[in-house]
Design a protein around this nucleic acid. Structure first.
Lengths: 93, 93
DNA sequence: TAAAAACATCGAAATATTTAAATATATCTA
DNA sequence: TAGATATATTTAAATATTTCGATGTTTTTA
């Protein structure tokens, strides 16, 4: 992961609603539906669409179209790479 | 770490100059001086002061005053807590 | 003590982000 | 096929962030 991607992911992680969306994966076997997000976040539909787009653009969520619905999977390898980048800040001498 | 602190740290990490500052710790035994930052980042002094403040406010850097100089240490425990918060996004079922 | 050095703060301009209303598109169902 | 449902896009307003010049504070040094 390069610094540019790290920056983009960090920005995606720097909003309370987007954090809430990601936390919704904690108690879930796999996917999250767009509509479900609407249930637990008090924002207008275009705003939720905007936030999900940020997360997808940062490669944190992988969208899967199912008819007129959209399901999202968490991109765990990218999370791991992000964590690895942070570990690199640490002094190793 | 709560979501609010996670958000603040993420925001602190979402700027190319601040990432560059943190990366400077990689090849360093311990501290980083304010003046040194000025050497490798092409920004006016108030801008660098602003970015360092963001990092200190996010608790990522610990400032230590030494006369008229300021030294910074990386707050590794906070980095670890931040990483732990991210791990919590992962599905654990 | 006067000047220099290191860092912070204020104020303002440029730019980016968040939000929602209005509207568009795609898909499903009756 | 008409209407309903799910999601995206456009536009605009409100707010936040980044940057720098000017200036202030503190500490060192000549």
């Amino acid at each position: 992961m390069d610094a540019k991607q790290f920056e983009k992911i960090s920005r995606a992680l720097s909003d309370p609603h987007r954090i809430e969306i990601l936390q919704a994966f904690k108690n879930r076997k796999d996917c999250l539906q767009c509509t479900e997000v609407h249930d637990f976040i008090d924002l207008a539909q275009p705003s939720i669409s905007h936030h999900l787009k940020q997360l997808v653009d940062a490669d944190l969520l992988l969208p899967e179209k199912e008819g007129r619905n959209l399901k999202y999977r968490l991109n765990e390898p990218v999370l791991d790479n992000y964590i690895h980048f942070i570990q690199g800040f640490k002094t190793n001498l």
